[in-house]
Design a protein around this nucleic acid. Sequence first.
DNA 1: TATGAATGAGGGTTCATTCAT
DNA 2: TATGAATGAACCCTCATTCAT
Lengths: 217, 217, 217, 217
Amino acid sequence: MRSNIDLIGQEPGRTFTETARRAQIMAAAIDTIAEVGYGQASLARIAEKATTSKGVICYHFDGKEELVREVVAELVARGAAYMRPRIEAESTGAGMLRAYVESNLAFLRENRNHVVATVEIVLNARGADGRRHFETGPGAASVAALRELLAHFQAAGEFRSGFDPLVLAMAIRAAIDNVAHQLVSNPELDVRHHARELADLFVHATSPREPSEGAGQ
Amino acid sequence: MRSNIDLIGQEPGRTFTETARRAQIMAAAIDTIAEVGYGQASLARIAEKATTSKGVICYHFDGKEELVREVVAELVARGAAYMRPRIEAESTGAGMLRAYVESNLAFLRENRNHVVATVEIVLNARGADGRRHFETGPGAASVAALRELLAHFQAAGEFRSGFDPLVLAMAIRAAIDNVAHQLVSNPELDVRHHARELADLFVHATSPREPSEGAGQ
Amino acid sequence: MRSNIDLIGQEPGRTFTETARRAQIMAAAIDTIAEVGYGQASLARIAEKATTSKGVICYHFDGKEELVREVVAELVARGAAYMRPRIEAESTGAGMLRAYVESNLAFLRENRNHVVATVEIVLNARGADGRRHFETGPGAASVAALRELLAHFQAAGEFRSGFDPLVLAMAIRAAIDNVAHQLVSNPELDVRHHARELADLFVHATSPREPSEGAGQ
Amino acid sequence: MRSNIDLIGQEPGRTFTETARRAQIMAAAIDTIAEVGYGQASLARIAEKATTSKGVICYHFDGKEELVREVVAELVARGAAYMRPRIEAESTGAGMLRAYVESNLAFLRENRNHVVATVEIVLNARGADGRRHFETGPGAASVAALRELLAHFQAAGEFRSGFDPLVLAMAIRAAIDNVAHQLVSNPELDVRHHARELADLFVHATSPREPSEGAGQ
DNA sequence: TATGAATGAGGGTTCATTCAT
DNA sequence: TATGAATGAACCCTCATTCAT
C-alpha cells in the first residue's frame, strides 16, 4: 500500500530532485506511521521503507519533527482543498453538515494512509517535555471552523437551539478521526457506510424538530 | 495530582506488601502517562515518580506491558462497577443512554488521571511489530456492550430505526474518550458541561421522531 | 599510564560499587582525554579504555557533561589540598609566590594525566551554543585567588607597586597551564626545571628593586 | 564582526575568482571558529556563515584540515609582517622584548577574530588519532624565534643571566595567547592594558639588576 | 524478597567527505 | 567549474530488560 504524494509543481526554493525526494520520503513516513504507529516509526524504519538511510532523511528534512510537520501540513492543505468545494456546493445547514462528514470520510477513503498517519501524528507527537506538538482540542483550526459552521446555522434557525456548537464540533471530529484510527487494525472497515451513518447521526442530532424522549427524563 | 489506587482487598496469591507496592507503582505509572503521554512514559520516569528504580518495577510487574495491562484492567473494572448501577437504574432507552454518557464522564471527573492514562495506553500501546495491544474498534468489549444496549432499544422501538448501532456505539465512545484526551492539554475543560451536552446530543440523534431535514439532502 | 583516582572514602549516598565504578570510569576518561584531547575523547573511546560500554558510563554519570565536570571538580579539590599547606607554610610574598608555582607544578608532575585532562577540558568544553562550560578568565576562582595573594603583598610593599595583580595572575596561570598543555606532545618535558624557572621568573617580575632598563624605553 | 582577509595579490596557479572564493570561505571559518570554538565549528556552520554549502568548501579546500591550515598560515605571515619591523626598530633587548609583546597584542587588537581563531585551532586541532596538527611547544617556530632573541641579549648581558630562554619564551607566548583566548568569553577585555602590563612584566623579569628576595628563600 | 548494576540495541542527529551531474 | 545530493560512520543518550547479590 503505497502512498501517493504528488506535489503539484515544485515548492519554491527547491530543486526538482529535492522536491521529488522529499515526496518520496514523506510517502515512506506516511506508510510507516500508518502501519506501525507513530511511536514505532523510527527514522530507521522510515528510511528502510524509502530504501535510503537515516542520513538522507535528515539531510532533506532537518529532523524528524519537520518531516512529521510536513506530512501533517500537506494533508491539511489537501483535505481542505478536497472538502471545501463540496461543502460550499450546499446551501442548507443540514446539507453542509452532511457534506462535511461525507467529504471528509471520502477523502479518508481516497487517502487512507495519509489520513491515518496524520491522526496518529496529531494524537501522539509530543516534545521531550510531554507537551503535544499539535492542537486537537477547542483551539484547533479544524474544530474552530466546524464550530463556526454549526453556530451559524444554529443562529439562523436551521439547527435546533440549545446545543453547544463547540462540544458538537469536537464530537464530530472525534467520530471522524476515530474511523481513521480504526482503519489501522480493521482495514476492511466500510468507510462509505460509516460516512453515511455518521452524517445521518449528526443531522438528526441537530434537527430542530423536538424529539419525544419518552417518560425517562 | 496523585492517583488513588486503592485495590479493594488483596489480590490472590500476593502478600500485603506486594499488593501495596504494585498499587504504588501503578499510581506512579498512571500519573506519569497522564502527564507526559504514553510514548514519553518510560520506566525510568515512572520509577522516578514512584521514588524507586526500574528494577523494582520489573521485579513486580514482569515488564512494562504487564504494568500497563494492569492499569487498564483496573480501570475497566472500576469503570464498570461505577457505571453499571447507574445505567441499570434507568428503565427507558433514552434514560440508559443518557446515564451511560453521564456516568462515564462523571467517572472521568472523579478519576481523571486514571482515565486519561488508560485512553493514552489503549490508543497508543503497540508491540515492536506495530500491532496494537488493545482493541478499541468494533470488537472491543466496551463498544460491543454499548452496541447491544442501542440495538436492544432500537428493536424495542424506543430508538429510531435506521441507524447502525455499531457505528453509533463507536461514535459515542470516540466522543467520550476524546474528552479524556483533551483533558491532557486542557485541564480546565468543563467535563460536566460536556457530559450534559453529549448526552443531549446522542439522545437527540436516536430519538424516533422523524426530523425535517430541509430541502438539502 | 593509568590514572589513579583513589577517592578517600565513599561519597555520600553512593554504594561502594558505585563509587568504585565512577572512579574507574573517571580514570579512563582522564587518560583518554589526556592522550587524544577533549574533542576526540568520545564516550565510546572512554568506554573502551574502561573496558565497558557507553551505556555503563551513562548509567553512572548521566551524561558526558557530568563525567567531565566531575573530573574537573575532583582535580580542583585535590590540587587545592596539595597546594594550600605548601603555600601557607611560607611567610613572605616571594616565598608564597614561589611555593604557588612550584607546588602547582609538583602537583602536575604527580598527577600528570589528571591535570592535562583538566586543562584540556577547561579550555575546550563548550555547549552546543559555543559558550564555554568553564571559566578560565578574570572571573575564574583560581585566578581570583592568585590575584588576591599578589594584591595583598603588593599592598604590603613586598612586591613592587605598579603592576596589575589581575594581569599577572592571568599570566602566571597561563604559563603554568601551558606546561600541562605541552606535556601532551612532549612527555619528556622537564617539569621540575620549568617549575624552578617559572618561579624565578615571576619572583623577579614582582621584585620591588627597581631594575635599570637601559636606554630603550 | 566580519573578518577581513585581503590576500595581497593572487596566489600562484589560482584564478582571481578562485582566490576570492577561498578568501571568503576563510573569513567565514575565522569568524565561526572565533565565535563558537574550534570543536563546534563544523563545515556546515562555516558554510552557513559563508552562505554556501559544505560541498563548495570541500571543492575549494580539499578538506577541513587544509582550510584550517591555510587560516593559520595566513595569520602567521601577516603577524610576522606586522611585528618584525616594529621589533627591529628597537636597538636594546628590553626595547625589543617590549616591542614584541606590544606589537603582538596590537596585532591581536586589529585582527581579533583571526588571532582568536588561530589560537583556537592551534591549541585544539588534532587528527583522528589524537595527535596535534600544530606544534606550540619548544619546537614551534614562534617560540624558537623568541627564544633566540632572549638568548641573544642574555649573552650580550642586557638581560640577567640565569634564566632559561626557552622557558621564558614559552611563558611569554602562553601569556600572550591567553589574552586572545580570553577574548572569546570576554570581549570587553582591555587588550591595550594587558599589552602594557605584560610588557612591563617581562621586562622586569629579565632585568639584570639583582632583586632582593627578602628572607624567605 | 528486593535492588543496584549492567546490558546492548536502538533512538535521532551531525559529521567530513565523495560523487554525479 | 561548481554544486546539490548522498553517504555511512560516529556522536551522545535512553530504552526495557536481566542478572548477581
